[in-house]
Design a protein around this nucleic acid. Sequence first.
DNA 1: GGGGTATATTGACGAACGTCGATATACTGG
DNA 2: CCAGTATATCGACGTTCGTCAATATACCCC
Lengths: 121, 121
Amino acid sequence: MTRVLEIVDRRLGDRCCDPTARPSRSHAEAEAAAIDFDQLAHPVRLQLLDVLARNEGRVCVCDLEAAVPVKQPTVSHHLRLLREAGLVESEKVGQWVYYRIRRDAARALRDRVQQVLRAFA
Amino acid sequence: MTRVLEIVDRRLGDRCCDPTARPSRSHAEAEAAAIDFDQLAHPVRLQLLDVLARNEGRVCVCDLEAAVPVKQPTVSHHLRLLREAGLVESEKVGQWVYYRIRRDAARALRDRVQQVLRAFA
DNA sequence: GGGGTATATTGACGAACGTCGATATACTGG
DNA sequence: CCAGTATATCGACGTTCGTCAATATACCCC
């Protein structure tokens, strides 16, 4: 009895609307997508990727440094993040280190991002 | 004389490669793009946008709260960020506030993001 | 091997971010 | 006007991020 009254109370209650509005993706999936966006959410990383994408083959770190307005340790830091994200790879040649973009990973990232965005717009 | 020697020294010097590798976009443009990615770089914001996109019309805050695993002030915080970014708009109706996604802004954001990504992959 | 160069790493620092309890504000029904 | 509810704001706190000077590491050439 009490139970029925409670249910009725809820139905007639002061809900603004019923929560049919559920997210289509789990929070875990949203977290994964957020990581994708996070990797691109810094101007220096975007510029580094831009230079690397535009230079088929390899670019040495000194040229990457010249392309962005931060000091050498900071460039190294962002290159590390990009490397750990799998978006670039590096190769040591003598005294220098050359970076190149990983097209496959970049394409996969682009596809995942586009899929998220398709749901919004 | 000294000057010529210096130039020659640089030419023959120990550069790994000439910096033909310049970014195609300015740092200011990269900063603007990074802001776009930043707005999407959080799981709660992605989930909120997801729910809003999937509900043509309006969704009240209480339902948005139910859709994400954070407390009410945090939901309010992220809704404010989305509102300030122009991605959603709100309307107060009596006791409740309804949010809706701004399709035009979402589409514009998507297009800008896609343009950046096209350069990479 | 010693001096020079390229890149990475470390450590420190301030700034920005994310979260939440507490509170304020605005509305509603009685 | 009062008690209750919905949402926003405030204030504090811990965490992560971005940057750089200093240093380490690895390489090169003489």
